[in-house]
Design a protein around this nucleic acid. Structure first.
Length: 875
RNA sequence: GGGGAAUUAGCUCAGCUGGCUAGAGCACUUGAUUUGCAUUCAAGAGGUCAUCGGUUCGACUCCGAUAUUCUCCA
């Protein structure tokens, strides 16, 4: 069975059991601070389990793309070394939200595996929860009894809390789970050791394939368990692993999920898979990582140096490094694997096809950048070896610096060191890393107190901000959060006009008022579908009704910018072409920023055309078209474009300005008609990454302000230039004149130095065979230096001392011919230190040239005498 | 969010503990050479050493702030 058929068989089976098949959620998670990537099938249903939202369907199944880079069995550093761990993988799952429970879940799983997918039941084992005294939980006999009916009891095992009790986090929904394991060993092996004894023992051929979680409890803040009103089922089956089982392979990488990519790699590297341990590992690393990176980029997550983007960059770099070291790829190669991957997965995940070109560009760019990092590291490494030739051990501190500051991988340092017969002080390296981690932990530490429940509400949380900017409401719960420098409160209201940061639009600011007090809301954000108000203070009486008032002015400006963003998006597509697609957006009260896919820099004409079109639409004063509660399909029929990497609910909202101009899916706040925006002005255009451009713009008052500023600058400039007819011409003339004057000045100075040169030459006195000059001159220090260097070239055995006096300051310059430095042991540095005492100052320099400064110009003469005395004593 | 680093000629980079009139390679201009694949040789142009402030007789170098970029950790 091909992998695509397996995926389809799974989905078809559950569809036949009345499950609604939902698309995979994006791999990148946006509104959950505890999670960067989707790491399990249940992530997109978290809100349902938490009770924040209700599901439209009781039964759901999907194939979810997931990414794991850390966790029990998924350390990024391990991927590739074995044959079954991955960063990106697909998780097949079926769910029941308050519908069926253990009996049906077990029945479905068994029927699908043994009947539809024809796995030999003899090879299957299951585990059930053994209970836990501390939590006062009895063994899960209910699950046991259901299993007993379908397979012999000797293949049912009890498992402990670690393996068989699933929890979402420290608090929240949880429950016992039941795992299905498969024994893939040969009959001979099976006879030797019973499969039963190898369950959950990390045996590579006795593995878990499906986990059925029965969610029935809620873990409270105090650690106690409470029964949930509705029970849920949450299951997850690793797709790649299932393919391995069904295709009779011993490694996930041998299945048709990975083989086409590996075949491509072997072609490029001219190395066969299975030839050598090291190159095999490298190929697995590359094959795994290219999938992760491509899916992430297609979901809109570009590599960057913070957060989720940084994780993607790390994965990409790890692949490049393995390719570089073991497969001898020393120029970009990852993008060459892209067509195979798109070809293979593009059917199930259309975003890969749509984002093909962009993905290739971004990856190539990253590869080039990293190869540069590598060569810089190699240079530093070699320099270090050269500077410490006798060490034979690389200090941990240096190895850490290479890694920490220059991003040079430690194992590459190790490899290069061993090639030269050196070793690395890994202890020291680890110490550095540990300190780094400690620092970060300290800085990132956030103490979150438990939620304080104030009042209960029967209603769902409500957002009133589309209609009004001030609402009468009550506090449901709040908590105090202590971060490193500041502490603040998070407040949840029953209904709120405050817009929480999302879709690029920043969160509202404003006030919460009750009869006696008012507190400021400094930000509003969304967490697990709830609007969280951030405040610096808390009411002394949280039970009183409050009025929530949004800062009207800021909101209005934000709305201007948001609507302008839509017009900009549409205008970009009109002017540049339909390939333009939103890649990111930021909408603040005083500006807007819009990132989009486009291959080249915008010309000035492009920008003008775009501004012109947007402003024309503003003047048309198009009323906003708003439609709520549409299905995604209905919205798309209207022409709204769904973005890859965005998660849309069952109901979407569409904002349009003229049906045939701008139609977008959007939850943000907008103007009532485009005329409100007033005026639109682009202030900058730049690149963010390969194939992605950024436009920043302002609207309304802010745009007016910027234009006024520029106008003022221009007026000031005109006045400065005495109102020339042609400003540009005037400025150019001024610059030319200035250059001319500079030249003349230089020449005059030159002449002065020339005449001084002659004058000084005529003043040479002989002290022994030394040509001695000590004179006051009226030039600046730089010219004095120049003069000294010119004289020393022309005169042998010169001892030149120049004194400069201006106002309250005195300067000395001393130049001595190299020959005198050598033969007489004269040292300008020492001499100037001595004689500068006479001008109440200090100085220094090199043996042949030194300078000094002081605050007594009257002492210059004495300094000259002193120098002469010193010379006489030498000769 | 925290730590470390970088910013010097069009490009890639040297410039050690403050003082060598800021250098190299490539690219560029000019002249010669007339070349089996980066032809060679010579001369030259090109720099507010990221920006602002401070310490100092003196700052590319030290200190502080800002901006941009890189990098590691969370």
């Amino acid at each position: 069975m091909k992998s695509s058929e397996i995926r389809k068989a799974f989905l078809d089976y559950f569809e036949s059991k009345n499950h609604h098949i939902v698309p995979s959620a994006p791999m990148v998670v946006k509104d959950d601070p505890s999670l960067m990537f989707t790491n399990a099938g249940m992530n997109q249903f978290k809100d349902i389990f938490l009770g924040n939202t209700r599901s439209k369907y009781d039964r759901v199944a999907d194939s979810q793309k997931c990414l794991r880079v850390s966790g029990k069995h998924n350390d990024l550093d391990e991927v590739g070394h074995d044959t079954y761990h991955h960063t990106m993988f697909e998780m097949l799952g079926n769910w029941s939200f308050g519908d069926y429970f253990k009996k049906e879940a077990i029945g479905f799983a068994w029927e699908l595996l043994t009947d539809v997918l024809a796995i030999n039941p003899e090879n299957l084992y299951v585990t059930v929860f053994e209970g836990d005294e501390k939590d006062n939980l009895t063994p899960d006999n209910e699950a046991y009894d259901h299993w007993k009916k379908i397979l012999p009891e000797e293949r049912i095992l009890y498992g402990n809390k670690k393996d068989n009790f699933w929890e979402m986090g420290d608090t929240g929904p949880c429950g016992p789970c039941s795992e299905i394991h498969v024994d893939l060993r040969s009959d001979e092996e099976k006879k030797k050791t019973p499969g039963r004894s190898l369950i959950n023992q990390d045996h590579p051929e006795v593995i878990e394939i499906w986990n059925l979680v029965f969610i029935e409890f809620n873990r409270m803040g105090d650690g106690k368990l409470k029964n949930l009103p509705a029970k849920h089922v949450d299951t997850g089956m690793g797709f790649e692993r299932l393919c391995m089982v069904l295709q009779g392979k011993r490694s996930n990488y041998d299945t048709d999920v990975f083989q086409p990519i590996i075949a491509e790699i072997t072609g490029l590297a001219a190395v066969q898979y299975g030839e050598k341990k090291e190159t095999d590992i490298a190929m697995r690393v590359v094959a795994d990582h290219v999938r992760a990176v491509v899916f992430a980029i297609a979901d809109g997550q570009l590599p960057s140096n913070t957060g989720a983007g940084y994780v993607i960059r790390r994965i990409l770099r790890r692949a490049i490094r393995y390719g570089y070291t073991f497969l001898r790829f020393d120029e970009p190669f990852m993008n060459k694997l892209l067509p195979v991957l798109v070809d293979q997965m593009g059917e199930a995940y259309p975003e890969l096809k749509a984002q093909h070109q962009l993905t290739g560009k971004v990856i190539t760019e990253e590869e080039i950048a990293f190869l540069r990092t590598l060569s810089q590291g190699i240079r530093l490494f070699e320099q270090y070896i050269k500077e410490h030739p006798e060490n034979k051990v690389i200090e941990g501190k240096f190895a850490f610096e290479l890694f920490d500051t220059y991003g040079f991988p430690i194992d590459l340092t190790q490899l290069m060191a061993s090639e030269k017969g050196w070793t690395i002080d890994m202890e020291g390296f680890r110490k550095g890393l540990e300190q780094q981690k400690e620092r970060s932990r300290k800085a990132a530490k956030v103490d979150t107190e438990d939620w304080v429940l104030v009042q209960k509400s029967e209603k769902e949380l409500e957002f009133t901000g589309y209609e009004e900017l001030s609402s009468e409401t009550k506090i449901l719960r709040y908590r105090k959060v202590k971060a490193k420098k500041k502490s603040y409160y998070e407040i949840i209201l029953e209904k709120t006009p405050f817009y929480a940061k999302s879709g690029g639009q920043v969160g509202d600011k404003g006030l919460l008022k009750n009869r006696d007090e008012e507190i400021r809301v400094i930000d509003t954000k969304k967490e697990n579908n709830q609007t969280v108000h951030i405040t610096e203070k808390m009411f002394s009486n949280p039970f009183a009704p409050v009025r929530a008032i949004v800062d009207q002015n800021k909101r209005k400006q934000t709305a201007n910018n948001h609507s302008a963003t839509h017009l900009l998006h549409a205008a970009l597509r009109h002017v540049l072409g339909k390939h333009v697609e939103q890649k990111g957006s930021l909408v603040e009260p005083n500006r807007l920023r819009f990132d989009f896919a486009h291959f080249s820099k915008l010309t000035d004409e492009d920008i003008q055309k775009i501004e012109k079109l947007v402003n024309a639409k503003i003047r048309e004063n198009i009323p906003v078209g708003e439609q709520r509660d549409l299905s995604l399909e209905e919205a798309q029929k209207l022409g709204a474009m769904a973005l890859f990497g965005e998660k849309y609910g069952e109901q979407v909202r569409v904002i349009s300005f003229n049906r045939d101009f701008s139609v977008e899916l959007c939850g943000g706040t907008h103007v009532s008609a485009t005329g409100d925006i007033g005026f639109f002005k682009i202030v900058s255009e730049s690149a963010v990454a390969a194939g992605i451009r950024r436009v920043e713009a302002v609207t309304g008052e802010q745009a007016e302000y910027i234009v006024r500023e520029q106008e003022k600058n221009l007026a000031d400039l005109k006045e400065l230039l005495r109102n020339p007819k042609d400003l540009i011409q005037g400025a150019r003339k001024l610059l030319e004149e200035n250059a001319e004057l500079q030249k003349e000045l230089k020449q005059l100075k030159q002449e002065k130095v020339n005449s001084l040169e002659k004058e000084l030459l005529s003043k040479i006195r002989k002290i022994g065979e030394i040509n001695f000059i000590a004179e006051k001159v009226d030039i600046d220090m730089a010219d004095a230096k120049d003069l000294a260097f010119r004289l020393v070239k022309k005169t042998n055995d010169l001892f030149l001392l120049l004194g400069i006096a201006n106002q309250a300051k005195a300067n000395l310059s001393l130049m001595i011919s190299e020959s005198l430095v050598k033969s007489k042991g004269l040292h300008a540095n020492n001499i100037i230190r001595e004689i500068s005492k006479e001008i109440k100052g200090g100085g220094g320099g090199q043996p042949h040239f030194a300078t000094a400064g002081g605050k007594e110009p009257g002492g210059i003469g004495r300094a000259f005498e002193k120098a002469e005395q010193m010379l006489i004593s030498v000769t």
